[in-house]
Design a protein around this nucleic acid. Structure first.
Lengths: 340, 340
DNA sequence: CGCGCCGATGTAAACGATTACACAAAGGAC
DNA sequence: GTCCTTTGTGTAATCGTTTACATCGGCGCG
């Protein structure tokens, strides 16, 4: 089934068929109808690769992610996919790029397959990309660093500071932090926010206590257990993301430690499930799916901007979301119990 | 940067360059080295579309999903992506295909972009695909119905029966079910399992109580609230997936109803987070990421099988996972509390 | 009536790879 | 020495589109 078959069946030239299909150039009404009928009858649809070859557009966006684990990424992909499809673009995803070599390989493998790339590689600096930015492929960095490329980042630092201040305001003296994986930029920023907020807090001096995690529930769970074994357990724990905070909740619950009564817990990201944990999780909201759709829109603007495109950097604000787990709001449960 | 530029720079023909790049045909060692050097120096990488056009292979798999919401899909995509990349394939995802027209459009849009399709469209019957299976594109159905295509499904019915029997064994008389969206086949099978298990239960007659949901936490939450308002609230609630079960937990917790003390809760899927809810969720395990990687492997087998490929249908077993929320295991919390 | 223009269509040259086929040189077998 | 095979390389056709350019009526205008 090629455009030739359609042309023959409709007794016209391939050019005319193409014009009808792409709505380019003038074609008589009845000719158009005839061609469309044939197209439908033969179930013809144009061959993507052939089309891409000549038009130099693939109508596809590549998405390179460090990992695909957890609700954060499904939200992100959801945002990207929906706003890409709205504009007639497809999405090619690729997860778990640990090292630089791997990411380079993928970038080159995508030549002639995508029109642009959304890259989230918080473990790497952008230098990895500079060298193999072969075809001048438009790239948008998500929480990456580098001023050569468009970028959208999240105010990790500000969010972390706000959360720690919130905990301090509630009177906590020993606030621990469960960090993300070493080398991850988001994690590093959140950690920096934590340290700064602890250091600059008014009143009595506090000292930071950091346990290293990896953004997964399991790590939060283990951190929770190990914190309880200390002789001076913290009164509040701030996890670098929600998944780990949920792990903390599980560990505390299992050990009979009450949240927020005995220890306050806070997370980061506000993944959809955070509202529904027990107790509901206090966290820092990152507009995840908006991050995805914004990235898509920006990238598409870039690659449809015929006349030069100015590199832009944008930082999305985060907002403190206080629920029960930090004790900032009186837990509904205790209210109800009291009412009984 | 085309293969021509490389050929010129290395003073050979394009054929030779191609041979080196694809490791096909004989090329002298020193010629090979020379070409590779030039390739590296020029940062050349072959154009995907051009290659696909002539080889008729894209090295890309398409994945059509009904939605991208929740941890289920991120796990599924993770499974697909990792096992696809292992074999040198890329993954094109596309979410939220509600109606038949949309799915048809996407299928045709992928001609010449993918070598095969993994389709999960539990809302649709396979007839939608039959007509537009234009190019004889290999298709693998995930939890879909239709004997024309390869398929992998999950034993939804058996899992639901097992879970309801588990609840009955624990002595529950009034067991409610929060179903998935109408028209969804997984949801329908789980519902059927629930009904059958209730109907065939030994001992006193029970009658089914079904509240319609849509697989999201919010629906579970609302169902929980509405169940509590009944004059004869159930003693156990079985949600058609984990997200809704988590919504139930939140609703009960907020209303001061104890789980599993006052009411037992169970889910379906065993998404990673289920182990870490409070209380930990009893559920039916679906090997999600395995489902994804198995689908990928089967599809790849299909499209590399030169000589005809026999259609196969496979059903993956589900397993009952008893944690605290059903009360099947004594909750750890009460043990600890008792120990104090 | 001749000219220019426009609308509708066709012809053929791209796009950037792969690969069948041709060919030259070298090596072995007789 | 001749012939056959093998190795290394080049030439050109091909994949299925889009699109610049050519062609050809018909029409309005001076």
């Amino acid at each position: 089934m090629t455009i030739r078959d359609v042309a023959r069946a409709a007794s016209v030239s391939v050019a005319t068929v193409s014009r009808v299909l792409n709505d380019s150039g003038p074609v008589r009404q009845d000719t158009q109808r005839r061609i469309r009928t044939v197209v439908a009858r033969l179930h013809y649809s144009p061959h993507g690769a052939a089309r891409s070859l000549i038009t130099r557009r693939t109508n596809t966006l590549g998405v390179l992610l460090p990992d695909l684990y957890g609700e954060f990424f499904s939200e992100l992909i959801r945002g990207i996919d929906s706003s890409a499809r709205e504009r007639g673009y497809h999405v090619l995803v690729s997860g778990s790029h640990s090292d630089r070599g791997e990411i380079e390989a993928v970038v080159r493998a995508t030549r002639g397959r995508v029109d642009g790339l959304i890259v989230m590689s918080p473990d790497l600096d952008a230098r990895a990309l500079r060298t193999n930015l072969t075809g001048g492929l438009p790239i948008l960095l998500l929480n990456g660093e580098g001023r050569r490329f468009d970028s959208i980042r999240v105010d990790n630092y500000g969010g972390a500071v706000a959360m720690v201040r919130h905990l301090i305001r509630l009177g906590h003296r020993r606030i621990a932090h469960v960090s993300g994986p070493a080398g991850n930029r988001d994690a590093a920023e959140r950690l920096r926010g934590y340290r700064d907020a602890i250091r600059t807090a008014p009143g009595p001096a506090r000292k930071p206590l950091v346990i290293e995690g990896d953004f997964r529930e399991e790590a939060g769970y283990r951190a929770g257990i190990s914190l309880l074994e200390r002789k001076d357990p913290p009164t509040a724990v701030f996890a670098a993301n929600d998944s780990m905070a949920i792990g903390l909740l599980a560990a505390f619950q299992e050990s009979g430690v009450r949240v927020p009564g005995d220890v306050a817990v806070a997370g980061f990201d506000d993944i959809p499930i955070a509202r529904f944990t027990t107790p509901a999780l206090s966290t820092v909201r990152v507009p995840i799916s908006e991050l995805g759709s914004k990235a898509t829109r920006r990238l598409l603007e870039h690659l449809t901007a015929s006349n030069g495109h100015a590199v832009r950097h944008e930082t999305l604000a985060t907002t403190l979301v206080v629920r029960e787990s930090s004790g900032g709001k009186v837990a509904l449960q205790s209210k109800r119990v009291a009412a009984k």
